[in-house]
Simulated assay, not measured.
Amino acid sequence: MNKVFINKSNLHPHFIGSWIMDELSICKGLINYFELNSIKHIKGRIGGGIDPNTKDSIDIVIHPKDILLPGNEIFKKYLDELFNFYKNYLDEWPFLKEMTQVLEIGSFNLQRYKPGQHFKKIHTERASIDSSHRVFAFMTYLNDVKEGGSTYFSHYDLEIQPREGLTLIWPAEWTHAHRGNTLIKGSKYIITGWINFAN
């Protein structure tokens, strides 16, 4: 077998879109929601259930039907911002407008990490038939983090430090395997989920 190398162009994109939210008050509102709703706190889950050796966090799961409930207005404000970022992502990669005409956001997570916690395992967002409907992942950092807590995309050797309002959208593929690095100090809050093929 002879390995053949295809000539590279000068363009080496990582396909990770990034934006800063205009309304940082939304971030503060989401953190407040998390802290005021401790009754909804659960241990972070992955596809196989609870495994703190893989994911160590405290989460609140938000379902689409919950968004319009009284007291949950902050999620509508957040999703409006996210939709603007998503439209900009499609403008950057026009092919996606043809491929992904009908997509939806399913359940998503509001999460908190304390020192020593993180998503420990390198993983991808589409890893089995059960997650094959995922097209993109999204994540917004809700606060600045000074020590630890970065997101590491292993194939690109790309490390992103949490910053209030910084929002990422990336393909839910093995090409974007990543992990969360250990939080050293303070708290780290994020909101994260997936943009899916419509059911």
Rank of each mutant, 00 (worst) to 15 (best):
K3W: 05
H12V: 09
F15A: 05
F15Y: 15
S18M: 12
E23M: 03
C27D: 06
L30K: 01
I31H: 05
K40P: 03
I42A: 05
G44S: 02
R45A: 07
I46Y: 00
G47L: 08
P52Q: 02
P52A: 00
K55T: 01
D56I: 01
S57M: 12
S57T: 14
S57W: 11
I58C: 09
D59R: 00
V61P: 00
P64Y: 08
L69D: 06
G71L: 04
G71D: 10
L79H: 08
L79N: 07
D80S: 14
L82V: 13
F83N: 13
N84H: 03
K87Y: 14
N88Y: 11
L90G: 06
E92S: 12
F95V: 11
Q101A: 12
N109E: 07
L110I: 11
Q111L: 05
Q111G: 08
P115H: 08
H118W: 06
K120V: 09
H123T: 15
Y141Q: 10
V145K: 03
G148R: 13
Y152D: 10
F153G: 01
F153D: 02
H155R: 14
Y156Q: 06
Q161F: 08
L166G: 07
T167N: 08
W170P: 01
A172R: 04
A172S: 15
W174H: 11
H176T: 04
H176V: 02
H176F: 00
A177K: 14
G180H: 09
L183A: 08
S187Y: 05
I190L: 07
T192N: 04
